Simulated scan of single mutants.
Amino acid sequence: MPVTIITGFLGSGKTTLLNHILTDNKNLKVAVLVNEFGDIDIDSQLLVSVDQDMVQLSNGCICCTINDGLVEAVYNVLERADNIDYLVIETTGVADPLPILLTFLGTELRDLTRLDSVITLVDASAFAPDLFDSEAAFKQITYGDMILLNKTDLVAEATVEKLEAQIHSLKEGARIIRSQKAAVPLPLILDVGFNDPMAYDAMIPLESAGDPQSHSPGHHHDHDHSHDHSHHHQSDPDHHHSHDHHSHHLENDGFVSVSYRSDRPFALRQFEQFLETLPSDIFRAKGLLWFNESPNKHIFQLSGKRCTLDVEPWNSAVPGNQIVFIGRHLDTDDLHQRLAACQAEPVRG
């Protein structure tokens, strides 16, 4: 089963690309694994036409909770009665792709799946070489087989050319595709065979801080594949030891998430005032919002200083507010109090 991993920094357009794949897949039966960095699963509620073929991975960054959750989810997809043609994994915006790659290249999954490519989305309107001083953002480009330079319509041509040169300086020979709203022909990104497992041999010793037991694609397990997978697909101690060295990027980057739920609607003006005074350390926010002034659902997206509100009916969903913020040094209590102050006064009598 071919596997494509979609990675990219906060707000780069990963869910938009995933929706494009699901909408335009030419009857390809695609299974989707979605990982959220936060305890409210917003992305899966924004995906189209996935129904039972979507698996939500546990709260937290996928590369830091890599072994049990991810491998078990992939086995669940493989064991479905109806055959799946393709598996697409959407990581969090703060994920380090390398541990995810190694899960497919260095465990039993290498015999059951084929890692086709790692697609890294880059927001052309927000990208800079330091990109918020994020270790994860740098690694996403380093380990990407293909760079989707997205949102090119929001910047000048000269800026796009400069960004491409900067990406090439970070990754020599990078394959770069320009896109708007992550819309690219699927033959350019699916079943392309760009991933080269041997390319990681030189990288992995650096990631494992010189650990001689580093878990490389050439490292083989001695598991009996005839046994029930429930007791043999766990990674061995070597993998855990190696992973310890490169799973600290969240601590290094300092990213945290703050989630908020409410079953009372917001007052639109109060929420607008809240947005006007958002802390500068919030890099990404997304949510499903209910306003007292409207019967509709509002899909809220914030990336850097750019904010959008798309409107659609609630349909069968129960109205309510669900919102997640991702940033550095966030004050959870303060954000909760300020959001609570946005709630509309209840109608009396």
Rank of each mutant, 00 (worst) to 15 (best):
L278G: 13
F274D: 09
L105M: 10
D191Y: 03
I84E: 03
C307Q: 12
M146E: 11
A285T: 02
L289W: 03
V311T: 10
E79T: 06
S12W: 00
E312M: 14
L46P: 05
D130P: 08
G304V: 06
R348N: 05
Q273F: 08
G210M: 11
F300I: 04
H336C: 06
P295S: 09
N35I: 04
S259F: 01
F127G: 14
V88G: 04
I42P: 00
M54Y: 01
I42S: 00
L288W: 05
V318F: 01
I119C: 04
P185T: 09
E293Q: 14
P217Y: 03
S216W: 02
K26S: 06
K181L: 13
A137Y: 10
L170G: 04
K297R: 15
F283C: 06
D39K: 06
S230P: 00
A95Q: 02
A137M: 09
Q213G: 12
D82M: 12
A165Q: 15
S58M: 12
V184F: 06
S235C: 02
A124G: 11
A209P: 01
I66V: 13
F194T: 09
V34Y: 01
D196W: 00
K162Y: 00
A183R: 15
R110C: 06
V184S: 05
L10I: 09
E157S: 11
A126G: 04
N76Q: 14
V55T: 13
R175M: 07
R328E: 12
L190E: 12
C64H: 02
D310P: 00
L87N: 03
S242F: 08
E90H: 09
L186C: 05
G11Q: 00
I282K: 03
L190T: 02
R114E: 15
H232E: 00
T120E: 10
L131M: 15
A182S: 15
H227R: 15
D228T: 08
E79S: 11
D310V: 00
G193T: 07
A81S: 15
P319F: 03
I6A: 14
N296P: 02
L275H: 03
D153M: 05
D228L: 10
C307H: 11
E251W: 05
R338H: 07
P187E: 12
D68V: 05
H227I: 00
I323F: 04
R114S: 14
S280I: 05
V258T: 07
D333L: 11
D228N: 15
N292M: 06
Q322F: 02
S208L: 02
D82R: 10
V311L: 10
K162R: 14
